[in-house]
Amino acid sequence: MTDHHAAAPPAGPVPWKKDFALKLLADMVRIRRMEEKAAEMYGAGKIRGFLHLYIGEEATAVGALHALSPEDNIVATYREHGHALVRGMDMGAIMAEMYGKREGCAHGRGGSMHLFDKATRLFGGNAIVGGGLPLAVGLGLAGKMQKEQRITACFFGDGAVAEGAFHESLNLAALWKLPVLFCCENNLFGMGTAIERAESQTDLCVKAASYNMPALKVDGMDIVAVHEVTKQAAQRVRAGEGPLFVEYQTYRFRAHSMFDAELYRQKAEVEEWKTRGPIHTFSARLKAGDKLTEEEFLALDASANAEVDAAVAFAEAGTWEPLEDLLKDVHTPAENAP
């Protein structure tokens, strides 16, 4: 078993206005509290199937998504609760979907892995590893052909880099100079397979750069760095420079899913990475710069917990999609045609 030593925790002043900094901190806390509750509800049997927690990786989705425009397209993976929430989906609709309730964003057809939201242009929730990348290429193509301002951000893990879909997609996007931002969340593992057991070249930027696109590496635990790099990257993509690849170096604190005994890594390694935890390190930096008080932190935490409680209540009160509707939404009714 290889050790993946953690670097020193992110530190230094936060170059943002207080309001903005607290908004991003609050979003990380909202994701954390929502997922802790989801795990609890999984234990209680309320949520079933696969549940992949993003805990530990929040700085990546929050920092990156706040660098994008509401008009942009987002393609994500099955580890997308955070992305969905930051994009603006209602926490109740997310929780209800995890419960499998009719009031969920997909009326219980998708579950935790398939959160979709037309209003915020979230195109899943894709649970075929690498499967979202070709879709992002096509969304980018459509955007370019229709001369839209929007770009498409596609999130995927380090594991996807070994799939053919990754290579075909980066090649097409670069060849056609499409406005796609490839956001690789490198948490060093694909399930139990550490990156050096999966990749002949573990520097993922080298792979991306071989497709003739700029490739940037950023500390995914440092929300300031994530946000600034993504903002810059998105600007370049939006300016028509073609696709760009960003590797967010992050770490998942929890098991891959709820069925994982974590035999493939040392507890000490996880503990070491927790010293880089995005919420407490960012909070400490804000406090050091007089941009956050303990009272303010407690207030935003309380607000997140209240939102979670309301989401759970909404999901609990939800109803089951009637069996008569089993075959609904296989084909599009003529009146709803896009």
């Binding site: 879709l135 096509g138 052909m145 879909a165 075909e168």
Partner: peptide
């Protein structure tokens, strides 16, 4: 795989 998937994405994109 890439261009069929891109067709799906382009259809989603209008």
């Amino acid at each position: 795989l890439g261009f069929v998937g891109a067709g799906i994405g382009a259809a989603l994109g209008g």
